[in-house]
């Protein structure tokens, strides 16, 4: 079985995140990381192939793929540490500024390029969101581009006999869905905890090869991606003004009353 995990290099959410003058998120090496939720997707992909014990592990393949500049190799190195078998970075100036729709087109084209490379894909497994933009829409758009069934926000996943079955929990409702493979599957952070890489895999990950593809590897019209194809344009991005200083009350028996008085005095109740 072969599983593709698209991963994203994002600013560390603990760091001071900001926009540049063109309204794009600033991603610098020192602060960047593999999107945490993508680590869960890598974990699920590894468990899928490890569970399929009828076939030796080396005949399975988990592929990590990212779209971004050379800095994004950091995300792929982390994926290698976790245990993926192959990594691809798609980098091209024409891609800069791609929106959700263009990103889905690029991922779809890259998936098809892998298949054409004699790497047929059984499933694409994605994280539920990227923690920098939280759009959570690329997975569904990718499924539509590939015309593969979508099984999204899985909190449990079983694969057998060429079908996948998931359970997903939405606001106030739990759904069970099934679909034939190949399919696009997104997973929540409740499905599995990512493994910790051991020392030898950290060392080995440093020298594993990363294939770098440009647009010539993808059967896609350059007009359909990048800034010029973006359907929305940021016209202003500004940090919010600092709030008023925090009022701190140290409870000496009246803390609850102080809290209630704060709400009442501000007209909040």
């Amino acid at each position: 079985m072969r599983v593709l995990v698209p991963v994203k290099y994002v600013p560390d959410i603990q760091s001071d995140r900001r926009f540049d003058d063109d309204g794009r998120i600033v991603r610098t090496l020192a602060e960047g990381t593999l999107n945490e939720l993508d680590e869960v997707a890598v974990e699920v992909a590894l468990r899928l192939v490890e569970a399929d014990t009828g076939v030796p592990r080396e005949e399975h393949e988990v592929i990590a793929l990212t779209i971004g500049p050379a800095d994004a190799d950091l995300a792929l190195r982390k994926a290698y540490q976790l245990g993926v078998d192959y990594a691809v970075r798609v980098t091209d100036d024409a891609i800069i500024g791609s929106d959700y729709f263009a990103t889905a087109r690029l991922l779809s084209a890259a998936t098809k390029a892998l298949v054409a490379d004699d790497r047929p894909i059984d499933a694409v497994v994605t994280g539920m969101a990227a923690l920098d933009s939280l759009g959570s829409v690329v997975s569904t758009l990718l499924a539509a581009e590939l015309e593969w069934p979508q099984l999204l926000l899985a909190r449990s996943l079983q694969v057998s006999d060429g079908r996948a079955r998931i359970e997903r929990e939405l606001d106030g409702v739990t759904e069970e869905l099934t679909a034939p493979l190949p399919a696009v599957i997104s997973v929540t952070d409740h499905i599995a905890a990512p493994r910790y890489p051991n020392f030898s895999s950290i060392v080995a990950a440093r020298t594993k090869p990363i294939d770098v593809w440009d647009m010539s590897r993808l059967a896609i019209d350059a007009e359909l991606v990048g800034q010029s194809a973006a359907r929305t344009r940021v016209i202003s991005a500004a940090p919010r003004p600092e709030k008023d200083p925090v009022i701190v009350h140290v409870d000496q028996g009246e803390g609850g009353k102080e809290l209630a008085d704060f709400l009442i005095s501000r007209g909040l109740v």
Binding site: V246, I247, H249, G256, K257, L259
Partner: peptide
């Protein structure tokens, strides 16, 4: 990041509020 903070035991503060 809050507007109003109470340093205290929630088991005491919340019922009193």
């Amino acid at each position: 990041i809050c507007d109003f903070a109470v340093v205290g035991d929630l088991g005491e503060v919340l019922p009193q509020a």
